[in-house]
Design a protein around this nucleic acid. Structure first.
Length: 213
DNA sequence: CTCTCGATTAGCT
DNA sequence: GCTAATCGAGAGA
């Protein structure tokens, strides 16, 4: 049985402006655990539960692309009002998806690191051909590969409910199931790399523990 | 214009 | 554990 079928229809709600603006870094990143990331791409639709996030934010955060309030064509979207998508190409190979949060001119974003697919399995199976299901979306590059997120989603408005958006379907994340850990791949950030700004829904991040499907 | 490097991953040894 | 892949942003000449 799928989670969506267990929930009443009324519980489905596309996140609105304040859901994004009020999520200040770093703790706001926790809010997105248990939310549904929905993506309509050229080749079809797929969605999944967000189970791991990382906070990036504040001009002081040396790991952030907006460190020192640096404004460039690429980073400008991070300064916009919360509720936009920030997608960029990393290592020339992988797309990484971020949720822009916080008020205008406050450069905060949440990187989505892991997702559990809840719809669009056949499409994702094609996109991730040859990869076992447990490795479909555990990693920010894999999340984008599985859901079909690309540069065409960059700067997209998450409030529109088209192409890419996030839904709250009433799924509750028990506080005791949330672990915090240092962010990955940001050793260059010195002491900022040590901050526990990664949020993991432990019961769901490991597919073997999932009650779903 | 040239050069460097990266919020990663897959495929090896 | 090691590293190639692959390309655009950003910095500097």
């Amino acid at each position: 049985m799928s989670v969506s079928s267990e929930l009443p229809r009324a519980a489905r709600r596309i996140l609105t402006r304040n859901d994004y603006v009020d999520r200040r870094s770093p703790h706001g990143a926790r809010f997105f655990l248990g939310k549904y990331l929905c993506v309509q791409a050229h080749d079809g639709y797929a969605e999944g539960i967000i189970t791991e996030t990382e906070a990036y934010g504040g001009a002081k955060d040396k790991a952030s692309h907006a460190f020192g309030n640096k404004r460039t064509p690429r980073t400008e979207i991070i300064y916009s009002l919360g509720g936009a998508a920030y997608v960029y190409l990393c290592y020339g190979v992988h797309h990484l998806f971020n949720i822009v949060t916080g008020p205008l001119d406050s450069p905060e974003a949440v990187l989505v690191r892991t997702v559990r697919i809840t719809d669009g399995h056949e499409l994702v199976r094609q996109r991730r051909y040859g990869v076992r299901e447990r490795d479909w979306c555990n990693g920010p590059g894999r999340v984008c590969a599985a859901l079909g997120i690309g540069l065409d989603h960059n700067c997209h408005d998450l409030l529109l409910g088209e192409k890419i958006w996030i839904e709250d379907r009433g799924l509750q994340v028990p506080p005791r199931q949330v672990e915090r850990a240092p962010r990955i791949g940001v050793d260059y950030a010195g002491t900022w790399a040590l901050k526990p700004w990664r949020f993991i829904w432990t019961q769901y991040v490991d597919i073997d523990k999932l009650p779903l499907s």
